[in-house]
């Protein structure tokens, strides 16, 4: 994958748990313009181990001097966000990928209904800029736990006024999905990004109300879960690699010097798909990409998030 070398130009503590990072290019060139909803994958070196996390770009896509991401501190994760919070300083160098968009706006929509929960607000920040530029019809519904968690709420309000509707849980605000989704004009597209249960609830409600699948958009990246160690064998390169408990298959392959494809690293895009030759155990699928039937068939695996409970798993690469 082609990369861009960047420097941290600014770090801002937005809420107790959220930091906003501003990147500029090492070579002083402008960044590419991107489309609202895009993410980049940030590579970080955590004590010699390379970890790559995907983050939504949240700046205005037309402003190319800097890229912006926000990171929520996840105490229980494998250290990526904690590293970003505690170790990263202004002036540090990092590598990011070119932007990739797996959460694109449907440009033909008559209306866009954006639904954000907590840190799930970030992809919408760049989408709003696109929607404003194209004078599109949209609403942003933003739910968060308490006023101090409403990162960017003020900033967005200032930009888009009453197209922003907030729901603050601690103040009794409730986002009633059924009400909201049952009164949308024909040709509306709905987009959701937030905690897993919220995403699932939105998708289920929309389906129950008869929304066609192509009108329902969600972004849900899974962090690779840890698990037991197992060994993989790559048939084409004849390599054998041990996947340690705290690493994903993809990370283990990369650490072994294998150039494996990926886009989202969160089980959403399908790019990393590998064909399974055989295993002496069971596949543990964690992705949102393969269908239930494909998962059951056991012929494919998404190494960015999925693992196996076995001694040996043989895949084609």
């Amino acid at each position: 994958m082609s990369h861009i070398n960047v420097k941290v130009a600014a770090i801002e503590q937005v809420t107790d748990l959220i930091k906003h990072f501003t990147f500029v290019r090492e070579d002083g060139q402008p960044f590419p313009v991107f489309s609202g909803g895009s993410h980049v994958v940030v590579s970080m070196n955590i004590n010699g181990r390379i970890q790559r996390n995907a983050y939504s770009l949240m700046g205005n896509p037309e402003e190319t001097e800097a890229y912006h991401i926000s990171v929520r501190r996840q105490e229980k994760s494998r250290g990526g966000s904690v590293h970003m919070h505690d170790a990263l300083k202004v002036g540090d160098s990092l590598q990011i990928t070119f932007p990739v968009n797996l959460f694109a706006l449907e440009k033909r929509a008559r209306k866009h209904l954006l639904i954000a929960g907590g840190i799930g607000i970030t992809p919408f920040m760049s989408q709003i800029a696109d929607l404003e530029r194209n004078k599109a019809n949209y609403e942003l519904h933003y739910a968060y736990r308490a006023p101090e968690h409403g990162a960017f709420s003020k900033e967005i309000k200032a930009n888009i006024g009453n197209k922003l509707i907030t729901y603050v849980e601690s103040e009794g605000g409730v986002l009633n999905l059924r009400n909201l989704l049952s009164k949308q004009p024909l040709g509306t597209h709905v987009y959701v990004c937030g905690p897993g249960p919220m995403v699932v609830a939105m998708i289920e409600t929309a389906r129950t109300l008869g929304w066609p699948e192509n009108h329902i958009h969600s972004e849900q990246f899974t962090a690779p879960p840890s698990g037991e160690s197992f060994k993989i064998k790559l048939t084409k390169s004849a390599l054998e690699i041990v996947v340690p408990p705290e690493m994903s298959m993809l990370e283990a392959m990369e650490a072994a010097g294998v150039d494996a494809p990926y886009l989202c690293r969160g089980g959403a895009c399908g790019r990393c798909e590998l064909e399974v030759v055989c295993t002496d155990g069971n596949l543990l699928h964690h992705d949102h990409y393969l269908s239930e039937a494909e998962k059951a068939a056991g012929k494919k695996i998404m190494p960015c998030v999925s693992r196996a409970k076995c001694d040996l798993l043989e895949v084609v690469l």
Binding site: M1, P32, T97, F98, P99, L263, C269, R271
Partner: peptide, 11 residues
């Protein structure tokens, strides 16, 4: 088709 849909900027 799958290949093209995952094509990236700058490549």
């Amino acid at each position: 088709l799958k290949y093209l849909m995952s094509m990236q900027l700058g490549a």
